[in-house]
C-alpha cells in the first residue's frame, strides 16, 4: 500500500513540479498498465463478438498511450489516442455495425490458427531484438522528450522535418497512395 502511494506521489509531483525526480518509470504504473494491456489484448483475440473485440482494441490502445505517459512521451501518447483510439477505431466500429457482422459470434476459436500465430509471435519476440541488435546504434534511445527547452512536440517536429525528412515524406506518399487505392478499388462506375 505504502509503495503504491509513494509511486503515485512521486509520479504526480515529478511530472508537475520538478522533472528530475521521475526520470525512470514507476514500477507500480508499469505493472498495472502492462497487465491491463495484455489482458485486453488477449480479450481482443478471445472474444467472439466483433464489437467487444473493437472495444478491447480501444482499451489496449489507451493503455499503451498511458504507458507512453509514464515514459514522459506525452506527445506520442496523445497522438496515439487521437489517431488510433479516436479516429481509426471509431471507423472500425462504424463498419462493424453497418455491416452487422454476426457470423463470428457462432464460431469457436480456430485452435490450429491460434497455435500458429502464438508460435510466430513468440518467435518474433525472441528473434527481432537479436536481429535489431546487429544494426549500429540499436542501443541508443531517441531522447527527444527531455532536450533543451521547448515542448517535446516542437522538438519532434524539428526532428521529423530535418533528419527524418525523407522518411516522413515517403510515409506521406504511402498514405496518399493507399487513399487513392481505396477510392479506385471501391469506386462503382455510374454507367455500369
Amino acid at each position: 500500500m505504502r509503495w503504491v502511494v509513494r509511486s503515485i506521489v512521486r509520479f504526480a509531483s515529478g511530472t508537475a513540479s520538478n522533472r528530475k525526480s521521475s526520470q525512470r518509470m514507476e514500477p507500480f504504473f508499469f505493472w498495472v498498465l502492462a497487465v491491463g494491456l495484455v489482458a485486453s489484448a488477449i480479450g481482443l483475440v478471445v472474444f467472439r463478438n466483433p464489437v467487444t473485440c473493437a472495444v478491447c482494441l480501444v482499451v489496449t490502445l489507451v493503455m499503451e498511450a498511458a504507458l507512453f505517459v509514464t515514459l514522459e512521451a506525452f506527445f506520442l501518447a496523445v497522438v496515439q489516442v487521437i489517431v488510433y483510439a479516436g479516429a481509426v477505431m471509431v471507423l472500425f466500429l462504424f463498419v462493424i455495425m453497418l455491416l452487422d457482422v454476426k457470423e463470428e459470434a457462432r464460431q469457436s476459436l480456430p485452435w490450429a490458427k491460434v497455435i500458429w500465430v502464438v508460435g510466430i509471435g513468440g518467435g518474433a519476440v525472441i528473434g527481432v531484438p537479436r536481429i535489431a541488435s546487429v544494426f549500429p546504434g540499436a542501443g541508443q534511445a531517441l531522447h527527444w522528450g527531455e532536450g533543451k527547452g521547448g515542448t517535446s512536440a516542437a522538438e519532434l517536429g524539428r526532428l521529423l522535418f530535418s533528419s527524418y525528412g525523407p522518411l516522413f515524406l515517403a510515409t506521406g506518399v504511402l498514405l496518399l497512395v493507399a487513399t487513392i487505392g481505396v477510392v479506385v478499388l471501391c469506386r462503382k462506375d455510374p454507367e455500369a
Binding site: 506527445f75 489516442v81 487521437i82 483510439a85 479516436g86 466500429l93 462504424f94
Partner: peptide, 22 residues
C-alpha cells in the same frame, strides 16, 4: 498543467464518440 494540453483536449474529445455510438 500539460505541455500538450490542447492535443490532450482533442484526444479526449475524440473518445467522446464512443458513448453515443455504443
Amino acid at each position: 498543467n500539460l505541455d500538450v494540453g490542447l492535443l490532450f483536449v482533442f484526444a479526449v474529445i475524440s473518445l467522446s464518440v464512443y458513448g453515443i455510438i455504443l
